[in-house]
Amino acid sequence: MRHLFIITVLSLCVTVAQADTQQTFTEWLQELKADAVREGISKKTVDATFKHAKLLPRVIQLDRSQPEFISTFLDYLNRRVNTSLVERGRYLLTQHQPLLAEVESSYGVPKQVLVAFWGMETHYGKMQGDFDLASALMTLAYEGRRAVFFRNELFNLMRIADARHASTSVRIQGSWAGAMGHMQFMPSTLIAHGVDANHDGRVDIWQSLPDAMYSAANYLAKAGWRGDEPIMVQVDLPADFDYRLAKLNYRQHVDAWKALGVYVPAHIRNLENAAILLPQGWRGPALMVFSNFDVVMDWNRSVNYALAVAYLSEQLVGVADIAVEDDVELGALSFNEMWALQGKLNELGFPSGPPDGFPGLKTQEAIRMYQSAHGLPQDGYASPSLYVRLIESLK
């Protein structure tokens, strides 16, 4: 993979050269500070926010870093949803039953779903992030990859301070990417969906669990949550199933899937927006997802994340594990291998777009085209065996 290493080094050199021509961080901060005042943010909040402003190289490193391996679904699930997370979640479901029942009654979002988000985001509030949020957002806005977005989030953070949801005398902490509180809201999300559940005049998503839970449920409800529908169920596919149909953007009524021979659990009835996913390829589990899966994806665009939230929510109330057959293909491609796979698909005439190291929808379609041309099950899955086959085909 020497060519990929050269590309990476060259891109870093270009980035450093561009940085040398930019304003210094201090000069840029002075302009940003003046812009914040023009945005109507109080001078007191602006001064307090900029008082300890720092460029955080670690934030830039995290923003630009690429994973060594692209996690498979089962690896991701095993790493994120372990026994201790489930057991702790079950305890908290019982401990906070009155609060969670109130939230569910108000918004229609099941209590186990809210607790699943809580567990996935911050391990139930234990890991809310230890970066100075103002400095992290300033760094990301200065670094430039998504400058406008992070600049606006910084201004929203200061508006939150102006509204006294968080004290300006305390430096708000959160993730390196700007998320904060029990549920890791971005500042704009708090402004749009925050709920003062305990009626103390503040939306305190850091310390007040009622505020955090009501705010999360409000977000999900506004995103279209359907209270009487599941997120996901496991299904069984017939031997002659057409794997080309198993993708997130192909939706049918549950009855249409049943007509194709798909076995769906008996309690799933009269749902129309159903898709089938094969997140570990055709030998792995087949999962049917519904409209509420799209709501979870609105929260976080990762399919693996959304499936993990669904799985954890089921584990919290005792639903059986996902069944996995012994012949499922395990093992993950590295970031460089995925990049090379995309390049080789392009070379063979199966357009996957410019290589980026991630198996997106275009790459999945290119894989299906290759699989069709070679008589393979068309699941669109970037498996290690497919990678080896592609490498061998060009020797």
Results as ranks from 00 to 15, higher is better:
residue 20 D to R: 15
residue 21 T to I: 11
residue 22 Q to A: 06
residue 23 Q to Y: 04
residue 24 T to V: 08
residue 25 F to M: 08
residue 27 E to V: 11
residue 27 E to A: 14
residue 28 W to R: 07
residue 28 W to P: 11
residue 30 Q to D: 14
residue 33 K to R: 15
residue 33 K to D: 03
residue 34 A to P: 07
residue 35 D to E: 15
residue 36 A to T: 12
residue 38 R to Q: 11
residue 39 E to F: 04
residue 39 E to L: 09
residue 40 G to A: 09
residue 42 S to D: 08
residue 43 K to L: 09
residue 44 K to I: 00
residue 44 K to S: 04
residue 45 T to M: 11
residue 46 V to N: 02
residue 50 F to I: 01
residue 50 F to A: 03
residue 52 H to Q: 14
residue 53 A to I: 00
residue 54 K to F: 04
residue 54 K to D: 04
residue 55 L to I: 13
residue 55 L to M: 10
residue 57 P to R: 10
residue 57 P to W: 07
residue 59 V to Y: 08
residue 59 V to A: 11
residue 60 I to E: 06
residue 61 Q to R: 12
residue 62 L to M: 07
residue 64 R to M: 13
residue 66 Q to H: 10
residue 68 E to K: 07
residue 72 T to Q: 15
residue 72 T to S: 15
residue 73 F to E: 04
residue 73 F to V: 09
residue 74 L to K: 12
residue 74 L to S: 14
residue 75 D to R: 13
residue 76 Y to C: 09
residue 76 Y to A: 07
residue 76 Y to I: 13
residue 76 Y to F: 14
residue 76 Y to H: 10
residue 77 L to K: 08
residue 77 L to A: 01
residue 78 N to F: 09
residue 78 N to P: 06
residue 78 N to M: 04
residue 79 R to A: 13
residue 81 V to E: 10
residue 82 N to G: 07
residue 83 T to R: 15
residue 84 S to C: 01
residue 87 E to V: 14
residue 87 E to I: 08
residue 88 R to V: 02
residue 88 R to K: 15
residue 88 R to F: 00
residue 89 G to E: 10
residue 91 Y to W: 10
residue 91 Y to K: 15
residue 91 Y to R: 14
residue 92 L to M: 09
residue 92 L to H: 12
residue 93 L to P: 08
residue 93 L to K: 10
residue 96 H to A: 03
residue 96 H to I: 02
residue 96 H to P: 14
residue 97 Q to T: 03
residue 97 Q to E: 13
residue 98 P to K: 00
residue 98 P to F: 03
residue 101 A to L: 04
residue 104 E to S: 12
residue 106 S to I: 03
